[in-house]
Write a protein that binds this DNA or RNA. Sequence first.
DNA 1: TTTACTAAACAAACTAGTTGGTACAAATAT
DNA 2: ATATTTGTACCAACTAGTTTGTTTAGTAAA
Lengths: 194, 194
Amino acid sequence: MKILEMTTQLVLENGFAGTTIDQILAKTQITKGAFFYHFKSKSDLAYYLMRHFADSDMSVMNRVLADTQGHERNALERLIAFVDWFVAEFEGLNEPYMCLYASYLYEPEQFSDDTKQIVADSILLWRKELEELLEGAKKQVPSHVEFDLASLADHFTVIMEGAFIVSKALNDPSLTAQHLLHYKKYLELIFRVK
Amino acid sequence: MKILEMTTQLVLENGFAGTTIDQILAKTQITKGAFFYHFKSKSDLAYYLMRHFADSDMSVMNRVLADTQGHERNALERLIAFVDWFVAEFEGLNEPYMCLYASYLYEPEQFSDDTKQIVADSILLWRKELEELLEGAKKQVPSHVEFDLASLADHFTVIMEGAFIVSKALNDPSLTAQHLLHYKKYLELIFRVK
DNA sequence: TTTACTAAACAAACTAGTTGGTACAAATAT
DNA sequence: ATATTTGTACCAACTAGTTTGTTTAGTAAA
C-alpha cells in the first residue's frame, strides 16, 4: 500500500516516535480522517508498517531461494549464489539501505509485543533458510573447520544489519556489498573453496 | 555524568524523539530548572549525550589497545587478543548491549550534522586502529588470501553493530560474543593460524 | 558573590485522536 | 425500472492533552 511504503521512509528518517501523523498526511496527501479510517491508532499503524516490511522481506528471501534452486545439484554453489544475489542487489544502490527491523529495535518501548514478535520471527526465518543452505553445503563438502549451523546462518543477518549501520554512518552505500563479500569469503575459507 | 548516563538508557529504550524531558526528570530526579541550567535545549542534550557516549567508546578502545600492547613482538597475537577482549566483555553480559551510534543513525533527521559527525568520526577511529593492528599482522604473516585493510577493519564494527541488533531481536545477549568469535575465526583463516 | 540548583506556574506550539459531515457506488426494496 | 438504503472511503474543523521551553522567586554552599 502507498501509505505504508511512504510512511516507512519517514520512519527510517525520523524514527517512529519522531514521525508525526501530520508528517504522514503531508507526504501521502491524505487527510486525518482518511488516516484514522484506515488505522485505529498510531500504534496500529506501527504494527501494519512492520507486517508490510516483513512480508516484503520474506518474499525477497523466498524469491532468491527459488531463483537459486537451479544449483540444486551443488549445494555449496547454491549457497554462494544466494549470497551473491544480495551482493549484486546492494552494489546497485546509490544511497545506504536502512532496515525497519533495526529501526524498531532501537526504540523498543514504542511497540507492542505483537509488533516486536514479527521482527524476531522474520530473523528466525532467515536463520532457518540459511541453516538449510549451510547444511546442504556441509554435507556436500565436509568442512575442516567446525562451526555451529544456526550461528553461521545468523551471521549473514548480523553482517547485513551491521553493514547498513556502518554504510549509513559513513554515508557510503557501497559498504554493504563489501561486507557481504566478507561473509562469502568466510564461507569459502570454511569450505576450503579455492 | 549521571544525567547523561541515565538518559542514554532512556534513549536506547524509547529513541531520542520518543524520550521526553519529563521522563528524564523522573528518572534522574532532577528538576526542569536544573535540566535547562545544564542544557540549552533538548537538541543540545542530544549532542552532549553522543559526545559522552563516543568518549566512553574511544576510551574503552584505547584501554584495550594499551592492554594488548604486551603482545608487541607478535602482531597477530595482539590482534587476536584485541578481539578476545571484546569476546570476553560481551560474554559477561546478561542483557543485550545497545549502541547509541545505531540509535542515532536510525532517526537521523532528529540530529544536527555536528552530532552525526561524532558518530562518523568514532567509526573511522575504530577503522584506523584496527587497520594498524591488521597491517602489523599482515606484515608478520603474509596472508595467502587477499583483502582490503580498511574493509576488514570496518568488518569488526559491522559485526559488532549487527550482533547488537540480532541479540536484541532474539533477546539473547550471548549472540554478540558468538559473532565476534566468527570475526576471530575469519582472521585466523585469513592468516592461516593453526 | 557566583555556581548550582529547587519549586511552581505558565505559555506557545504541537500531537493524537474525534466528530459530524459528504460523495458515491452497490445492494435491496417497491 | 426506480427509489431507498447501506457501506466504503474520505474531508475539514475541532478538542483535549502533551511537550518544550520560560519565568520568577528563592535556597545552599564554596
